[in-house]
Simulated scan of single mutants.
Amino acid sequence: MKQYLFFLIILLFSFNYSFAQKNDSLHAKRVFISTYIYKDGLKLTNSKVTILYKNSEQSQIKYKWSNILKPIGPVVIIGGIGLAAIALKGVNATAIIDGQTIDYKIRSLPKLLMGLGLVVGGLSMIESSNELAQHSVDIYNSMSKTTKKVGYVDKIKFGITQSNAIGFSVSLK
């Protein structure tokens, strides 16, 4: 009898209160260089997301910064690739050594390093933009879970059922 009572107490404390909980949370999905936000399986537009984030200032700020960084990252990457290509192409030069004319290229190492740095910076901007969008969804979901309550336990009855077994019933409010 003590084992059953102990089992019922553990079952009671590990009871999940989300019986009829509707999934109102947002979901962020990363696609290549963008992060799209979904609600109930439908992709939300930027205007709908900003309307949802109206009451959550932190989510709204992070989402705005995400939208600012999103188009800048690829432009910086393209600029870095262009600068690195110019550095690798080099400048034609000619030298006369022992009476012979020798053609060669002068390549700029600082330009190449700056181009590679721009590529890395652009990639980090894209990644930061996606992380900000994901974090804004996480903040919104955590705030909506704390403010919305679906139900709570109103009454719990323990006793013997009609078939002479031990049982309990739970009433939700």
Rank of each mutant, 00 (worst) to 15 (best):
Y140K: 04
S47I: 10
S56F: 11
G79N: 04
D24Y: 14
I106V: 10
V153T: 09
G41C: 04
I81P: 06
D138W: 06
Q134Y: 09
K148C: 09
T147G: 02
G90C: 12
L44G: 02
L5F: 10
A85W: 10
F32Q: 08
S124L: 13
V170I: 15
A165N: 15
G73T: 01
A165M: 14
T146V: 12
Y17H: 10
S142F: 07
V137L: 03
K173V: 13
G115R: 06
Y152G: 11
A93D: 15
S124M: 10
S129F: 07
I33D: 13
Y152N: 09
K89W: 08
A85Q: 08
I81L: 14
F19T: 09
A84Q: 06
G121M: 04
L11I: 00
I139W: 01
K2V: 05
I78R: 02
G79F: 07
L118V: 02
L42V: 13
A93E: 10
L26P: 06
M143I: 13
A165F: 13
F19E: 14
L123P: 06
I72W: 00
F6T: 01
G80I: 05
S66P: 10
Q162S: 14
L118S: 03
M114I: 14
V120D: 01
A28L: 04
Y104S: 08
Q162E: 14
L52N: 09
I160Q: 11
K64H: 12
L109G: 03
G117M: 01
K105R: 13
S108W: 00
T35L: 06
Y140L: 04
I77N: 02
Y17T: 12
G122H: 09
I160C: 02
S66E: 00
Y4R: 01
S136P: 04
N46R: 14
L69P: 05
S169G: 02
K70H: 09
F19I: 14
G122F: 05
G90T: 07
A28G: 12
A133G: 03
S25P: 00
Q100L: 11
V75K: 03
G80F: 03
S18C: 10
G151F: 04
T146E: 15
L52F: 09
M114S: 07
L172Y: 15
N46M: 02
E57S: 13
K173H: 10
G73M: 00
V137A: 11
W65F: 12
N130D: 12
H27G: 05
G121W: 02
T101S: 13
K148A: 08
K62A: 12
K155M: 07
E131A: 09
I33M: 11
N67M: 11
K148R: 15
I10M: 00
T35S: 11
S47M: 08
G80L: 07
Q3Y: 09
G122Q: 04
L113Q: 05
N16A: 13
I9P: 02
F168S: 13
S129G: 10
A87W: 06
V150Q: 14
L26F: 01
I77V: 09
I139G: 00
N16K: 14
F15V: 10
D40K: 15
N67R: 14
Y63E: 07
Y53K: 02
K70W: 06
I61S: 11
I51G: 02
N67D: 02
S59V: 05
E57A: 11
N67K: 15
N141D: 11
V137W: 05
H135G: 04
N16H: 12
F6H: 00
D154R: 12
V91Y: 08
Q3V: 06
